[in-house]
Every structure is written in C-alpha cells, then in structure tokens.
C-alpha cells in the first residue's frame, strides 16, 4: 500500500495571492523562508511583522500574520515599540538595503546597540529596486546603476557598506549572519539562519540579523539564472557569507 504525502506545499503563514515581484526576484524566496520558519516554530499567532519601504513594502499583504507598514528606514524603531509592549511575541523587520543601510542606518545600528530583542531580515541586492535601480550604500565598485551611470567610483560615492561586519562588533548583537539564495544549498542555509535568528529572539538572548544577498534580475539587467551566478561570483567576494556571531543558546 502506498499513500500520497506532501513534500512541499505553501505555508499557512503566506496569504494565497500573487506577488508583485519581478520574475526571478529573490525577495519571493526570502518571504517564503520567513513564512516557513514562522510556521515551523508554531509562531503564526504570535508574530508581528514590520515591513519597510521599497520592494518589501507589500510584505503585510503577503504574510498571514499581523503586520505593520512603517516609514522608510524606521522599521527597527517601530519594531522596538512593538517588542517593548509585547515582549513575548516574535517581532521582525524585513528591509532592503536602501531602507536599512542608507536612510535607516541609525535605527538599525541603535536597535543592535540596545540589544533590542527583535530580528532584522535584511535584503541586500546592491541597489534600490522599487524606485528603479539607483545606487545604494551596498552597490559594488564599478556597478552601473541609474544614479551611477559610469559605475560606482570611490571618489564620487565611496565604498560598499558591510552591515554584518559592522553590526557584529556590537555587544547587543547576538546573532549575525550573511546568507544567499543563489542555489538550493544556499537557500537551505539561509532558512537555518533565519530560524537561528528567530530562536535568538524568542530565547530573549538579544538582537539578531540575517543579511540575505539577493538577486535583482530586472535592475541588474540579467536573466534570473545569470543573476544567481552574479551573486555567487561577484557579491560573495565583497560580502562574505557566514555566521558572524552565534550565541550559545542556538548552536
């Protein structure tokens, strides 16, 4: 006798509706991983997601749990407010590199400084996606964007910002990892990191952050698979993958 068993199905933590993301955009994978981990940890009823402005702006329309749409860059401050009132809930932000590494740098850094028991899921695709592919603090040297038409030059726009390296110097930051989604093995690792970050929070250990190197095929002008290769070949050398800080409790 045999029976049919589900190997993979849509998590209940995602609302059943189409997404606005472009074909091959890694935001979709990142959304799905967050949703899967929350479902697996049994936290759907106890989660407050805080979105951002940029391609993550519709996250509250996709996640099937409570959600807040904050202003640009301020998600960690909004999450702080929620978490201080509801310390037993899972509170996480979902922010891109424009939102987090430019306009929201202060809020992100000081949430980590305070050891705020929230999680930041940080999508680094080296540019502003939603507004049409402008230069971000994370843009690679020489990378052509709509506002670095001659390629990023140090004398004009400085150097790429390595958020995990910076944040991991802070005592309040308990779990800090950089992951990628360019192949199935990396997706599995990314999911494990998101889980560890959420566990760090739920165990009350401290601040946690997962930076996800993500492909933006549309604004990179690449086919989806080529964009995956670009992450693997050109982003990981500037933004090395790995766990920068792991607390004892989640090892």
């Amino acid at each position: 006798m045999t029976e049919t068993v589900k190997v993979y199905s849509r998590p209940k933590t995602l609302i059943d509706r189409p997404w606005h993301f472009c074909p091959g955009c890694h935001h979709g994978i990142a959304h799905r991983l967050c949703a899967e981990v929350i479902e697996e940890m049994g936290l759907q009823e106890n989660t407050v997601g805080v979105g951002s402005v940029g391609c993550g702006v519709f996250s509250y329309e996709y996640f099937n749990f409570d959600g807040i749409g904050p202003s640009h860059g301020r998600a960690p401050a909004v999450a702080t407010g929620v978490k201080r009132v509801l310390p037993d809930r899972l509170v996480f932000t979902y922010q891109g590199d424009g939102d987090l590494a430019a306009i929201g740098t202060t809020e992100m850094v000081h949430a980590a400084v305070r050891g705020e028991k929230i999680t930041i899921v940080f999508i680094n695709n080296t540019l502003y996606g939603m507004t049409g592919g402008q230069l971000a603090p994370t843009t690679l040297m020489g990378q052509v964007t709509t506002t670095s038409p001659y390629g990023r030059e140090a004398k004009q726009a400085g150097y790429p910002m390595r958020v995990c390296e910076m944040i991991s110097t802070l005592e309040g930051a308990a779990y800090v990892a950089r992951v990628a989604l360019f192949n199935p093995a990396q997706v599995a690792k990314a999911k494990k990191s998101i889980r560890r970050a959420f566990e760090t929070q739920m165990q009350g250990i401290g601040f946690s952050m997962v930076e996800i190197l993500s492909a933006c095929p549309t604004n990179w002008g690449m086919a989806p698979l080529e964009a995956c290769k670009h992450v693997e070949n050109n982003l990981t050398s500037v933004y090395p993958l790995g766990e920068f800080k792991v607390p004892e409790g989640v090892k």
């Binding site: 407050v48 805080v50 807040i68 904050p70 202003s71 301020r74 401050a77 909004v78 999450a79 702080t80 407010g81 929620v82 978490k83 201080r84 009132v85 509801l86 202060t106 809020e107 850094v109 000081h110 400084v113």
Partner: peptide, 16 residues
C-alpha cells in the same frame, strides 16, 4: 537615538 526614532517607537507601541 533621535526624535525620529522616538516617534517611530511611539508608532510601534501604539500599534501594539
């Protein structure tokens, strides 16, 4: 860390 953050913490706490 700033009044910008303070008012957004207010937003979060009020939302909660």
């Amino acid at each position: 860390e700033s009044e910008v953050s303070a008012i957004n913490m207010v937003f979060g706490a009020a939302a909660a």
